[in-house]
């Protein structure tokens, strides 16, 4: 008889497995981190809505036993905004890839951050378009190879952490799949945070990004994450040249500001009390 782990209780493991993810992919580890964070915080599965767009990471709704909504490319955040406004009591999680969140969905990303609506965004950054077969993403490093950048990428990449902070997000963190315990802790903090929270997780795509960039073994990519990660406290004392190509990890912002649905509830209260007068 199969011994079930605690994580199994949060998975639709009876029917929906194996996953669509390739061997060595980082998304499964991140799914485990999300589940452990929800489990550690004792959040009821009924109270979690997990919303995604299109892409490899956006296939997660199929596997997790929450209220799950698999929407259109780039649009998970506005769908999640509708859910959160109607059910401010629910934990609304958006799982998004780098292309989904920063290219086609970039506008929604900055506006959700600006409103500071209580959505937790898990941005799984593997530097490439995986589902469509390895095309350049807004996060592909300069010079890296992709099927639509066969001569090396000439498009400068986005820094999602700085983008979110500039747009007004009140919880912003970055971690890696290699540091999965740290990742889980950041997701826990993000889920407890009132307001828009972003956790960017550097993930590995050995089959496409790795193969096109001379790191086809997942172990190589995980080692690359390990060797290039610099904690924020240490990075503060380093020059931009020294930080070139590094992954700065840590909590970049944790700020207490009024969350959007609370702000809206106050507006309703004010309008209704004026009506009574």
């Amino acid at each position: 008889m199969l011994e079930l782990s605690d994580v199994h209780r949060y998975l639709r493991w009876k029917k929906r497995f194996p996953t669509v993810w390739c061997p060595g992919c980082g998304i499964g580890s991140i799914m485990g981190a999300i589940i452990r964070a929800v489990m550690d915080l004792n959040i009821s599965k009924d109270d979690v809505a997990l919303v995604s767009g299109i892409g490899c990471s956006s296939r997660m709704p199929v596997y997790v036993d929450f209220n799950t909504l698999h929407t259109t490319h780039g649009r998970a955040i506005p769908f999640a905004t509708g859910i959160k406004l109607v059910r401010p009591d629910m934990k609304v999680i958006v799982v998004s890839g780098d292309g989904d969140a920063l290219a086609i969905g970039g506008n929604h990303f900055i506006h959700a951050a600006r409103r500071n609506i209580g959505i937790t965004m898990i941005l799984i950054n593997n530097s490439i378009y995986g589902m469509t077969g390895g095309q350049v993403a807004p996060t592909t490093p300069l010079g890296a190879f992709a099927h639509t950048m066969p001569y090396g990428n000439i498009d400068p990449d986005f820094n999602p952490v700085e983008l979110a902070m500039a747009a007004g997000a009140t919880f912003v963190a970055r971690s890696t799949v290699y540091s999965i315990v740290q990742t889980t802790n950041y997701i826990k903090k993000a889920l407890q945070h009132q307001g828009f929270s972003l956790v960017e997780i550097i993930s590995q795509c050995p089959v496409l990004f790795g193969r096109l960039n001379k790191m086809p073994d997942p172990k190589q990519l995980l080692k690359w994450q390990k060797d290039n990660s610099i904690p924020l406290a240490k990075a503060k004392n380093m020059s931009p040249e020294e930080l070139e190509g590094k992954i700065i990890t840590g909590i970049f912002r944790e700020e207490d500001k009024m969350e959007y649905t609370q702000r809206y509830a106050e507006l309703v209260k004010r309008v209704q009390s004026e009506l009574e007068d």
Partner: peptide, 21 residues
């Protein structure tokens, strides 16, 4: 609830999400 979204794509997505809730 009324919300002015950042574009029409977000507007229709938000009302579908609200209806799902």
């Amino acid at each position: 609830t009324f919300i002015q979204m950042e574009d029409e794509i977000a507007s229709i997505a938000a009302i579908i999400g609200a209806s799902a809730a």
